[in-house]
């Protein structure tokens, strides 16, 4: 079995993995990172979205061996020093989650979107989140949250 090294949410792991093991199963079944859920098996829903070396991937569509040597951030690693990431805060303020199952992937996708497009229009947000499905919210409040989160992320950049 191949041995891989990954860093997940700041912690280094070395694991022997079957070549077929998916990244999402490495995270959930082997490393106990159950904050990232698996929703569909066909990369349609986006619930399993994580950051791999700074860019979002759907972790059901990446083999664990492909992630060898990479730095992964999941929803569990976003809040720093007990303080929510601005996008997490914005989702709370705008009531952008109900059951919360799509939320980890949605938040990760939203952060990636805003890094590429710091001041996204409503249309850009809707297009940008097309690969992340939510069955509860009808997306209205998610769009509002991403706008708010983008503003707060922008201010955080300016003040740093």
């Amino acid at each position: 079995m191949p041995r891989i090294s990954v860093k997940v949410d700041g912690i280094a792991y070395e694991e022997d993995v079957e070549p077929r093991l998916l990244l999402v199963h490495l995270l959930r079944e082997r490393l106990g990172k159950t904050g990232t859920p698996a929703g569909c098996d066909t990369s349609n829903c986006g619930a399993c979205t994580v950051m791999l070396d700074g860019k979002t991937v759907k972790s059901c569509s990446v083999l664990a061996v492909q992630a060898d040597g990479s730095d992964i951030v999941t929803i569990e690693g976003l809040a720093a020093n007990g303080s929510l990431h601005p996008m997490q805060r914005a989702f709370h303020e705008e009531h952008a989650l109900q059951c919360g199952f799509c939320t980890p992937g949605m938040v990760m996708a939203a952060i990636d979107l805003v890094r590429d497009t710091p001041d996204p229009s409503e249309e850009a947000i809707r297009e940008g989140l097309e690969g992340n499905l939510c069955r509860c919210t009808g997306y209205c409040n998610i769009v509002r949250a991403v706008k708010r989160g983008a503003q707060e992320m922008g201010q955080a950049v300016k003040s740093s």
Partner: peptide, 14 residues
């Protein structure tokens, strides 16, 4: 929200 937003969830499969 806080729990759901930070991945401290208790889905049955977790």
């Amino acid at each position: 929200d806080a729990r759901l937003l930070t991945g401290r969830t208790r889905w049955t499969d977790n």
